[in-house]
Design a binder for these strands. Structure first.
Length: 440
RNA sequence: CGGAGCAUAGCGCAGUCCGGUAGCGCACCUCGUUUGGGACGAGGGGGUCGCAGGUUCGAAUCCUGCUGCUCCGACCA
């Protein structure tokens, strides 16, 4: 992409409404625009990041055996009356009427609808286990939206729903998602820690919030230092290995970890002082088992091997990709701007033509741009007639992981300057060595 | 939902108390000089001053009502 033809409305000054760093940087980097309280338009740069996050989430869901579908944003009130939640949900639910005065709602979540879909087709235990998910916009009419994408009213959510014959099966389904989440956040370049969450109506130990560590995170978290070093399961993890998966989950849940509202100072004090970690974090995922809470009232039943119909045991698993865009920035930025992890960067490489209009630099940049494009690398070529300093500032602000600086100085020596945004390191490399580095 | 505040050019703000030609910086356009960390000079364009009433010869400014947004608290992917 040529910057001169891209739509990148960056700002030098900070809009006053933006309070937290991710919100400020997203506005300054031209990633999104507020259209109403808690409602945002994604501009091209922001959309690129959102799509990359979404794709990683999708790949890890698929790897764990979940199957993607897509449910609508608008739902019928009748469905929610069946579960009893239409009245229970409260004002957070956006309720609307169609032209025939039928009561509808903009879905804040999809347990009812997925249960309706399940019961329409699945009759036998032989079709279990089943895990269906979608990535769809949700709307929750929060009293007070704030912090930009971190707490918007409209947000993108990946929500998965598992169906099993019994609780033992449900535990395995839960564990699959648990491990999938560990892998997902690791791939996004984040350090995530599962923390025991309010167990809800069912009780038990099958509810966890996934918190990522970020110095500017909104909640305080306390955990055992060992969490920072536990290896995340590799891509070859066997999701059908019930025992193996359980031991991974055990490893990730045996030590102390809690957010401030669940914090037990005494228990935390038991940990030796050098192993205590008090940090800040952001909730980016939540998984829980809720048994037959919806299957019972909504009659989602299957016949077991004994021929007897039983309500299925369900769990649900949420990740907010739109919140993750902001969360990643909170976890990875500096005074100059965003530092995207390579996996989610809107562009992997930026080419900075330091002397636009000079035939030697133009030729070198154009050629190199074509070479990278030919290799299938996401590259943003700054071919604007801005001065060098302005181009450096822009590239740093929007956080492109690799900046290839091409100017008369380097060209005289036959080299490009390659800067790594993550640590600011630079080296002068020949064009061939640069290509080599970027395609490694 | 309780409390506080804001609304003037794309962004950041002054002007409002004390009514009298709507301003500044950045951004944008033109020309020139510049060109390795957000250049300089000259010229230029852009506004129903959130909306609706009212007072007045005259309202961004005073009065009334409304709307939108932000922050603190309670609540949450």
């Amino acid at each position: 992409m040529r910057l001169s033809r891209f739509f990148l409305p960056i700002m030098k000054e900070i809009p006053k409404e933006a309070e937290i760093v991710s919100h400020r940087l997203m506005l300054r980097a031209g990633m999104m625009r507020q259209e109403a309280a808690g409602i945002y338009a994604f501009l091209p740069l922001g959309l690129r990041v959102l799509r990359k996050i979404e794709q990683i989430v999708r790949e890890e869901q698929n790897r764990a055996g979940a199957i993607e579908l897509l449910m609508p944003t608008i739902q019928s009130a009748d469905l929610w009356r069946e579960s009893g939640r239409y009245d229970a949900y409260g004002k957070e639910m956006l309720r609307i009427k169609d032209r025939h005065e039928r009561e509808m709602l903009y879905g804040p979540t999809n347990e009812e609808m997925i249960t309706e879909i399940f019961r329409a087709y699945v009759r036998s235990y032989k079709d279990l286990p089943l895990n269906l998910y979608h990535i769809q916009w949700k709307f929750r009419d929060e009293v007070r939206p704030r912090f930009g994408l971190m707490r918007g009213r409209e947000f993108l959510m990946k929500d998965a729903y598992s169906f099993d014959l019994d609780q033992a099966g449900a535990r395995h389904s839960y564990n699959k998602m648990f491990v999938a989440y560990l892998r997902t956040f690791a791939r996004l370049g984040l350090k995530s820690i599962p923390m025991r969450a309010e167990s809800g109506p069912i009780g038990g130990d099958m509810s966890h919030e996934f918190i990522i560590l970020a110095s500017t995170g909104e909640s305080e978290v306390y955990c055992h230092k060992d969490y920072l070093d536990i290896p995340v399961p590799g891509a070859d993890v066997d999701f059908d290995d019930i025992v193996g998966l359980q031991s991974t989950v055990d490893q990730w849940t045996s030590n102390y970890a809690a957010t401030s509202d669940m914090h037990d100072a005494a228990a935390f004090g038991q940990i030796s002082a050098d192993k205590q970690v008090a940090a800040r974090g952001i909730e980016v995922g939540h998984i829980f088992y809720f048994g037959t809470k919806y299957s019972e009232p909504m009659k989602a039943v299957v016949s077991g091997p004994d021929g007897i119909e039983k309500p299925v045991h369900m769990g649900s698993y949420g990740i907010g990709p739109s919140r993750l865009v902001a969360a990643i920035i909170e976890a990875s930025h500096d005074d100059a701007g965003i530092k995207w992890p390579e996996a989610v960067a809107p562009f992997r490489v930026a080419i900075l033509n330091l002397k636009q209009g000079d035939s030697a630099t133009d030729t070198a940049c154009e050629g190199f741009y074509r070479d990278l494009m030919g290799k299938g690398i996401d590259v943003l070529y700054d071919d604007t007639d801005q001065r060098a300093g302005s181009k450096f500032a822009t590239a740093d602000l929007i956080g492109i992981p690799w900046q290839v600086v091409i100017g008369p100085k380097g060209l005289a020596a036959g080299t490009f300057e390659v800067k790594k945004r993550a640590d600011g390191s630079r080296e002068n490399l020949s064009p061939a060595a640069t290509i080599d580095l970027l395609t490694r």
